[in-house]
Amino acid sequence: MKLALQLGYWGADPIAEAPALVAAAELNGFDAVFTAESWGSDAYTPLAWWGAATERVRLGTAVAQISARPPTALAMHALTLDHLCGGRHIIGLGVSGPQVVEGWYGQPFAKPLARTREYVDIVRQVLARQAPVVSSGPHYRLPYPADAPGSTGLGRSLKPITHPLRADIPIWLGAEGPKNVAQTAEIADGWLAVFYSLSLADRYEQWLAEGFARPGARRRRDDFEVAAGAQVVITDDVAAAVDRYRPSTALYVGGMGAKGTNFHAELYTRMGYGDEVAEIGRLFLAGKKAEAIAAVPDEMVRETMLVGTAEEVRAQIKQWEAAGVGMLMVTARDVATIEQLAALV
């Protein structure tokens, strides 16, 4: 099992302890460090800034939102960072949700699977640098058609000026639903599993297998990376740890989306918490945040956590590894926790 430090995105302020955490991750054998973005801090600037002090760990985005940048711009970020870190970058991409895509980026959210497929194809064209980049769309058209609204007709196909260090920078995709996970297996090099659950492990493998079986699939299961985000807490007080993360479970299930359109809620429903999800969503959308948090049962929080004594957590890690997880992306916020986790694996 590999370990990765997930720094995530910032809240109201930057993560003050990040340099010490990154240094500890590198010193203690973590495989990678990841950053994320929502509608505040971006994913690439902190990754480059903090990553400049590293020599070994891989540096990834988990995730960079595809609506935040045209695919050629994302490829520019990626090839630049990959040069600067000596070939240690992982491109992690995700579609976000309609509230963010349409409300923050002013882009249409429709057809996220098709948009992702086109986006990845264009990024790979840039990194390959074998020919000028072209795309017939319909979501990303390169060059912009001469007969399209507002076009000057002067657009031309281009190759990147800078030669990428690696044509095969790995691309990992964040995915939650069966179609998205299957497409990830087909076109990507790894899967960023946001809320991994052992109760769904067999279904995850079925979805992945469907993608690997498609004609032209990029990889096979044995050379494909599965990275699961998880709260890992070593403690004798499991109840306190569950209480600490109950609000975030309520937020993602009830508040990170609109009524009828919340991918996290759909995932927890697949886990078997349909009634609880409905009640949490009803309360959250009614503005009853405290009641929504109280409605989250302990077992629902623990579904995506590894928690207990050191020996109990070690046993849980082995269960996740046996189920197909190759990397745990942990959100440690102190050096001691990083050292404890490193000792477990």
Rank of each mutant, 00 (worst) to 15 (best):
I90Y: 01
I91V: 15
G92Y: 02
G92W: 07
G94V: 01
V95T: 14
S96Y: 00
S96C: 05
S96M: 01
G97A: 11
P98S: 14
P98N: 08
P98H: 03
P98V: 10
Q99C: 04
Q99D: 15
Q99V: 14
Q99P: 00
V101C: 13
V101T: 15
V101M: 04
V101N: 13
E102N: 08
G103R: 03
G103N: 02
W104Q: 03
W104P: 07
Y105L: 04
Y105A: 09
Q107T: 05
Q107F: 00
Q107W: 02
P108H: 06
P108L: 08
F109M: 02
F109L: 07
A110Y: 00
K111G: 00
K111R: 11
P112M: 01
P112L: 07
P112C: 03
P112G: 04
L113G: 03
L113H: 09
L113F: 01
A114R: 14
T116G: 09
R117H: 15
E118N: 14
E118V: 12
E118G: 12
Y119S: 11
Y119K: 10
D121G: 11
D121C: 13
D121E: 15
D121V: 01
I122D: 03
V123S: 01
V123F: 12
V123I: 15
V123H: 09
R124H: 06
Q125E: 06
Q125G: 05
V126A: 04
V126G: 07
V126S: 12
V126R: 01
R129K: 12
A131H: 02
A131C: 01
A131F: 00
P132E: 00
P132G: 06
P132K: 00
P132R: 05
V133E: 04
V133Y: 00
V134H: 05
S135H: 11
S136D: 14
S136L: 13
G137S: 10
P138W: 08
P138G: 15
P138A: 13
P138I: 07
H139A: 14
Y140H: 14
L142S: 04
P143E: 03
P145K: 13
P145G: 11
A146D: 11
A146Y: 02
A148P: 12
P149S: 09
P149K: 07
G150A: 15
S151D: 11
T152F: 07
T152P: 01
T152C: 03
T152A: 08
G153F: 05
G153A: 08
R156C: 03
S157C: 14
L158P: 10
K159Y: 06
K159V: 11
K159P: 05
P160M: 10
P160V: 12
P160W: 08
I161F: 14
T162P: 04
T162S: 12
T162W: 05
P164N: 08
